[in-house]
């Protein structure tokens, strides 16, 4: 089985088990305020890290290229409170323009 299939199936199985366990286990195990707090912060850390890695790295190297310009424009769009599709499209257009013309 290829790595992508392992990732696809493994993620799906664990995602379901996590959802199902919430419906099945006693409330006290997961209602600890510390766990609640950490749980709210984890997406912030992981998603921010993903943004950085997908923007400025390739394999194990740090590279500044057209992607950073695209994400920079996305940040401007977000600061201007643009809706999600506008954010993504402005990043794509900027990055594509630089990639194709420079």
């Amino acid at each position: 089985m290829s790595a992508l299939w392992i990732a696809t199936i493994g993620t799906s199985v664990i995602a379901f088990l996590l959802k199902y366990s919430g419906h099945s286990i006693p409330e006290r195990f997961l209602s600890n305020p510390k766990i609640q707090r950490i749980n709210a912060l984890i997406p912030i850390a992981l998603l921010s890290a993903l943004v950085a890695v997908q923007t400025i790295s390739e394999k194990s190297k740090l590279i500044i290229d057209h992607r950073l310009a695209g994400v920079g424009v996305a940040i401007i769009a977000l600061l201007l409170k643009a809706p999600f599709p506008v954010v993504v499209l402005s990043a794509a257009c900027t990055s594509a323009a630089i990639y194709n013309w420079f």
Binding site: L50, V51, A52, A74, A92, S95
Partner: peptide, 15 residues
């Protein structure tokens, strides 16, 4: 890359 999708992906995470 010619369509900017490699920047659209992190932009989507950012969103």
């Amino acid at each position: 890359r010619a369509w900017g999708l490699d920047a659209a992906v992190p932009a989507a995470f950012l969103g």
